[in-house]
Design a protein around this nucleic acid. Sequence first.
DNA 1: GTGAAAGCGCTAACAT
DNA 2: ATGTTAGCGCTTTCAC
Lengths: 342, 342
Amino acid sequence: MRPSIKQVALEAGVSIATVSRLLNKPDSVSIDAAGKINQAIEALGFRPNFTGRNLRAGRSRTVGVVVPTLSNTVFAQCLQGVETAARQRDYSVMFTATEYRQQDESAAVELLLAHRVDGIILTVANADASSTLDVLDRERIPYVLVYNQPQQAARPSVSVDNRDAAHDAVTHLIQLGHTRIQMLSGQFHASDRALQRYQGYQQAMREHGLQVLTPIEIPRHTYAALSLEHLQIFRDPSQRPSALFCSNDLLALSVMRDLRAIGLRVPDDVSVMGFDGIPLGELMDPMLSSVAQPSEQIGELALRTLVRAIEEPQDGQPPASTQILPHTVRLGGSVRTFDFHS
Amino acid sequence: MRPSIKQVALEAGVSIATVSRLLNKPDSVSIDAAGKINQAIEALGFRPNFTGRNLRAGRSRTVGVVVPTLSNTVFAQCLQGVETAARQRDYSVMFTATEYRQQDESAAVELLLAHRVDGIILTVANADASSTLDVLDRERIPYVLVYNQPQQAARPSVSVDNRDAAHDAVTHLIQLGHTRIQMLSGQFHASDRALQRYQGYQQAMREHGLQVLTPIEIPRHTYAALSLEHLQIFRDPSQRPSALFCSNDLLALSVMRDLRAIGLRVPDDVSVMGFDGIPLGELMDPMLSSVAQPSEQIGELALRTLVRAIEEPQDGQPPASTQILPHTVRLGGSVRTFDFHS
DNA sequence: GTGAAAGCGCTAACAT
DNA sequence: ATGTTAGCGCTTTCAC
């Protein structure tokens, strides 16, 4: 076993209380006691044990993070933001992924709660119908949603306005002259954001009297390949949309690859607009048009919000604020004006 | 305070030992005691407190992960692999990033050790000269390096053979007829892998009697922009290399963007080869040629290795194995045969 | 300024 | 099969 405060006390010839004091409030210890203790700490290679401290304190200075997957850059960036902000505040981060499986959400949260994390930052499949969040609410565990943008309940969250952002993106396509605009998404049931973005698409289409097309819903939210049936649609010039609005950038880039594979050009044959604004999109040729959300900032703000909730427990009604960060429509070569000759 | 095993015992009318037994070895508890306890657990919403358990056990069933940054997909994938494998074994993951700052490595590790993680998976700037690893060795903390491929010390690691992989990549370029091949890298002092890859480049060049060019060393390892001086080199057809071997894919994609910006075409004017084989490289047009390493698998294997070391403490000499995973040269349109007319 | 002692939640002897 | 108890490492009264 590694040396404890006890051996340090023994070695330094003081009581464990004094050692503890030096560790926490160095000023309250006499100079020579401090000297002896520091010497003992050095000699023994003592390192405080947070487990003991946490047990005693009832806090862990640790936050949990639960996201679908790190394969999507967006969540990796967000986690990076959380971690950076946490480290600045001397918090540690426990990380879990759910692979978009709703049943894994509760298991992940249970594990974090068993570890007695002080709070949780998470993205769930559906923030308005989540038994996991019900648990958190009931048990008054501080948490902040990221990317989720709950509609009904007063659940704290940090996100862009998904509907509005999608609306902006689609409106942009419409202004470029597109009328046959279709949405491509991963399964809606695993992502309420995707559904909200679809609503934004619908709204924009209706505002301009355009026909809302049935979205192409594919099995995965990350690297995906179009099915043969879907490819058939694109092969037929009379069937294919002139512009595609994708629920995230990974899907957008995947579909661009698939379109190239069947001989279609982007943007000449099909314009493609993504969502997320992942950094790699800017390195593509043509550059990927996308609605950028500030992922790292989302993570950072979520952490700040969470820490505030942890450290200033408001027993009255929690100020469960929905924090909306600005999105940006990033224009790139993957979309072009609609041209009747194409 | 949340209910403890104590309140459960009280509520169920049994001793805390019996509750503990039900939690750990359910068979050793009578049917009706189990019934009462489960009822009490349900009623109180009891959740075991790992802090207490860990303090008692001297273990935490938690591993720490330290990597430079999640902005590089490679590390995100690796962390994903670690997390998945950890969850399967009921381990939790504490995550930290260092932003490629060597001084942050030791701070990160110190924090993890204070949390009493059972072991650490990490990537350091230089595995052969790391005071952080010295500490870990001295204190006999189980750890496994990822991506690092230590040369001298017997430090456990999981990686590809960086030198060999780079050698393969450059040999491929040479076989395509390239003779002016230059390496582009982030700062070597922050990445021993990059240096090893450079050595692989050197070796391949020398084997074919080609001139080793001074590498272009840029300040960052992730999204970077070429400086004006470097761009000048590329503008001059007599100065620029016909092929560029980059120390990672992010740099490769960045430089491709920069080359496009000054009117050069990839691969017609310059062939570009990356390293890592990030998934997005395959979605590019032209597809990024790269040496692919199995990042998720690296993370997974590292976790498995670490858990083995944790659970089967070998007091003799630790079997510090350097585990090399196979790399693959992935061929894409970003490289082409060298043509004198170009 | 310092020490003695209680107790955070839990598990593992040891007893019965 | 169950209860009693010690103790993991730490902080924090409460005395002195």
